[in-house]
């Protein structure tokens, strides 16, 4: 059996409305990737359709995925124990 690690995911305001969850603690397989997060792990919580939709937005750069304060764009980025993930629509300051 794969070793499990724990991660924290927080959805920003409008995405929290879309997913119905503000934050989630999840136990996942070690070395799971961002791609797995959207397509395999999150669907059990927010549904397959929303997971796939978010993944598409992520690939198009239309939502931002921040892991421990670092912007992540590679879907193959591996997740680690204790990672804090913040997911928010693309936005700009001014």
């Amino acid at each position: 059996m794969n070793e499990r690690v724990r991660i924290y995911i927080e959805f920003s305001w409008s995405l929290a409305q879309k997913t119905g969850r503000k934050f989630i603690w999840l136990d996942i397989d070690r070395d799971s990737k961002i791609e797995d997060l959207f397509l395999k792990i999150l669907p059990s919580v927010i549904g397959r359709e929303i997971g796939e939709s978010l993944f598409k937005l992520f690939l198009n750069g239309e939502i931002l995925v921040i892991v421990n304060g670092i912007l992540v764009v590679d879907p193959l980025t591996k997740l680690s124990d204790g990672d804090k993930i913040y997911i928010q629509p693309m936005a700009f300051g001014g």
């Binding site: 409008s14 921040i66 693309m90 936005a91 700009f92 300051g93």
Partner: peptide, 17 residues
């Protein structure tokens, strides 16, 4: 989604981010 983000809260939506 950027449009909807701006429409919802403008630049204030990015402070915490």
């Amino acid at each position: 989604p950027t449009f909807h983000s701006f429409r919802s809260l403008g630049t204030a939506s990015v402070v915490y981010l």
